[in-house]
Design a protein around this nucleic acid. Structure first.
Lengths: 235, 235
DNA sequence: TCAAAAGTGTTCACGTTACACCCATGA
DNA sequence: TCATGGGTGTAACGTGAACACTTTTGA
């Protein structure tokens, strides 16, 4: 075995996940009741420690899969929280991730091992440690990233309508957009494939379903800037 | 003393700094010869361990100050590297920061304790561990951030000319801009204060110096999107 | 037939681009 | 005086915002 760095402190390293979902009306986050001492039973983000032979990315995937049953989920590391006193039990570094999942898929594959619940991002309970700050930052990052990257689609079902997409954007940016301009802009990206069928639950006329064109998705991602109208006034 | 989390692994936590500078011609990074076993003497990023009673931000400031003598420097945490095998000595998490400094101020206050040298971002030696990946990612983040935030000014002296500013942007984005459009866009931000004197080293006519309006800087930051012409084709 | 939501068309204002042009000055 | 880089003017173009208009269909 190799020698170690001498005289250096070592800390536990955790991963915490802000799991975003969208129920058609509100942007939501998934919270769990903490299973560990201290603060056992309090609401917190889903998290866990980074094990010996895995990276933080792998830990985040493992933890999300344990909670939701889902794999191949959009996840992004966005900030590492290191305040010496942030965890009252012992010094712990936390690498924070946010995840975007289709809330319906979650319901199909939920694990009951954790007491998990969805809360509106606008109204959720007090969280332990610095988890409140994590949520706040995650939302900002999501807003920032989504101005120039087509990631919000990850929150929707495979088939979705333009009005639904618009209401998602409106909720994420807490504003409203002109429907005509919104639909033209989205369609101009070339990322959407129009389906033959319509969703008739929202109106009498019905709105066409669209699917994300996953083939061109990766290639077109870099072309898409300014998906959001008026980002200047928002961010 | 509080109880600890049992059965969890603990790792050393380091900070690595990508220090950017601009000499008037090329974007540069500051590298040092590693002082520690293993790989002692090889080129690497400036780094160090996060001590018991400091945050990673504080560690990054401390480490940068030790190397450059500079405080109050623009620094930004951008990614945490966690691959289990990234450090060959023992498992170490590294929180990476990039810093933007005025290369001339550095020369005034350099510490000789480290064997440090500036290298062009386009041509620098092989680095230890995953430091190569860190530099690559830092450059991308710098490009990304600077499209919408006036941070590149941190690389320039207090007084600078528009042609110099333009050549900096051109070097960062590896492209060229129309000088007329560039100057109008920069001036339209309201961030630049025209000085009475000119820089005559670059031309016979001379170019006016400008200063950053630090008073309105913070207030205007959020208003400025798309400082870079044609970001679509670049990023 | 009418209300309500989906979707289309059109105008106007503005910002960006490309490029021509003028300016200042040291050699 | 002329070459050189600094700086200004401007017409053409494209895009986004606003809003009026048409379409569809269940009640």
């Amino acid at each position: 075995m190799a020698a170690k760095y001498s005289n250096q402190s070592r800390y536990t390293v955790a991963v915490d996940c802000i799991v975003f979902g969208y129920d058609g009306k509100n942007l939501k986050i998934l919270l769990v009741k903490r299973a560990l001492i201290p603060l056992k039973g309090r609401w917190s983000l889903m998290g866990g420690f980074v094990a010996k032979n895995e990276s933080a990315d792998q830990a985040a995937s493992r933890i999300l899969a344990a909670l939701t049953g889902l794999t191949n989920v959009y996840q992004e590391q966005f900030y590492t929280f290191t305040d010496p006193g942030r965890d009252t039990q012992e010094r712990t570094i936390s690498i924070a991730y946010f995840s975007l999942i289709d809330i319906k898929k979650y319901k199909e594959s939920i694990s009951d091992a954790y007491q998990a619940e969805w809360f509106s991002i606008k109204d959720f309970p007090n969280l332990i440690f610095d988890h409140q700050a994590m949520v706040k930052m995650a939302k900002k990052r999501l807003q920032y990233k989504a101005t120039s990257h087509a990631i919000l689609f990850e929150l929707l079902p495979d088939k979705f309508t333009l009005p639904l997409l618009q209401s998602l954007f409106e909720d994420v940016y807490e504003t409203s957009f002109d429907k005509g301009n919104f639909s033209r802009k989205m369609l101009s990206t070339g990322l959407l494939l129009k389906q033959r069928d319509k969703d008739k639950t929202g109106s009498k006329k019905g709105a066409y379903f669209y699917k994300l064109d996953r083939k061109n998705y990766q290639q077109n991602l870099h072309k898409i800037l300014k998906l959001v109208p008026n980002p200047n006034s928002i961010l």
